[in-house]
Design a protein around this nucleic acid. Structure first.
Lengths: 211, 211
DNA sequence: TTTCTTGTTGATCACACGATCAACAATGCT
DNA sequence: AGCATTGTTGATCGTGTGATCAACAAGAAA
């Protein structure tokens, strides 16, 4: 009886409708995961028939992988943006580790973990996952190489170390997804670990402003 | 035409049939993931009607989580068994890191990653995941504490460090699931990272027998 | 106003899932 | 031999999925 039911959706331009669908998919994925991305689910949020969602997408696999890419790429760029405001490589690596472990992005972490699994049966998604991992690795590698140049770090294979740090951060975040308790000072411990990997002095990467 | 089709399954004792189902579930999960654990899928492998599988299980959520626990607990015990053959904490931690990164258990890693996601919608599984993570953490913590006692390591919070190492190993394994290339000397890098965390001398945990 | 373009609907298809249960049949017991 | 127990079947239900498409209607063009 309320005004919730709308007889027919207002007619919009394809670009506008496509944007609505993309946004709805993003929200649903962040709230309930990539698995919750169904035609009917998205259609309901946009306030539209399920057929229309299908009309704007080649198939669901594509929608899932593009939604994944949207969410994850935005995060990468956001964090990369924060990095550029820090003066040197030590400060940047420190911020990177600290920021990625602050538990404010657990929804994105959940998407990552889900994508790793879903990629087994969705080749489009798998390719997208590899692309986005490369993007993250690039960010780390840049910082490590910079530190090598300034002498703050001492690393033979910057690419490998960057992969390694990325893997560690991913693992710790995934862990936080399941277990939040029992782990104290994650940033400090990881900082020490990274110090060990890049050959920096012990304590040089530990954030000064505490946890 | 061929002898592939069997009109009716031979009658077996409940214990025996239940064991068959458990084993079939284990195989399917390792080959195609926990998502592939369906009544019909398992029934087909056992050579039995789908109803019979349901008959031996309260519901699918329980079957999925018990299958997860079976697979993962077996791995934990296997690796823990290997550990006990090593003389001291440094050798044990070294073996632990080395063993878990040798890519011979990627199927189990895939199950872990899948369980992290599935646990969001299967509370029974989520509880099982937490239990099994605790078991792993226990293994690590034991080694760290031992190293603390002998003076090989210098760690304030052994529990936290154990969680941290576990998270790193998980992350690196999950990464290997998606990307096997580009990362060289994972064991060496992680060894250095762990050295940084436990306060061991640089190189003290790097395996002598190379990668 | 009339016509045309096109965004939108919603019913429908085939498929897969978990769950249920009356009917069946193999086995052991009397 | 006949009987009782019980492991097993397979059809069936309700639900959810992606995909498809003829029919509809809103808005622009004539």
């Amino acid at each position: 009886m309320s005004s919730t039911q709308q007889k027919r959706a207002v007619r919009k331009s394809p670009a506008e409708r496509a944007a609505e669908i993309t946004e709805a998919a993003r929200e649903i994925a962040l709230e309930a995961g990539l698995t919750a991305l169904t035609l009917r689910n998205i259609a309901a949020r946009v306030g539209v028939a399920s057929g229309l969602v299908a009309h704007y997408q080649p198939n669901m696999d594509a929608l899932v992988s593009s939604t994944f890419a949207n969410i994850v790429a935005a995060e990468t760029q956001e964090v990369a943006g924060l990095l550029s405001q820090r003066p040197g490589p030590s400060e940047r690596l420190s911020l990177l580790v600290e920021t990625l472990l602050d538990n404010s992005r657990l929804d994105v972490t959940a998407i990552w973990v889900e994508a790793w699994t879903l990629g087994r049966r969705n080749e489009t998604l798998a390719a997208s996952v590899r692309d986005q991992m490369d993007a993250w690795q690039n960010v780390f590698q840049g910082v490590v190489e910079e530190g090598n140049a300034t002498g703050a770090f001492n690393v033979t294979d910057a690419a490998a170390v960057a992969w390694q740090i990325l893997g560690m951060v991913d693992g710790l975040n995934a862990q936080a997804l399941v277990r939040w308790d029992g782990v104290n000072d994650r940033g400090t411990h990881l900082a020490h670990a990274v110090e060990g990997m890049v050959g920096a002095a012990r304590g040089s990467l530990v954030s000064k402003q505490g946890a």
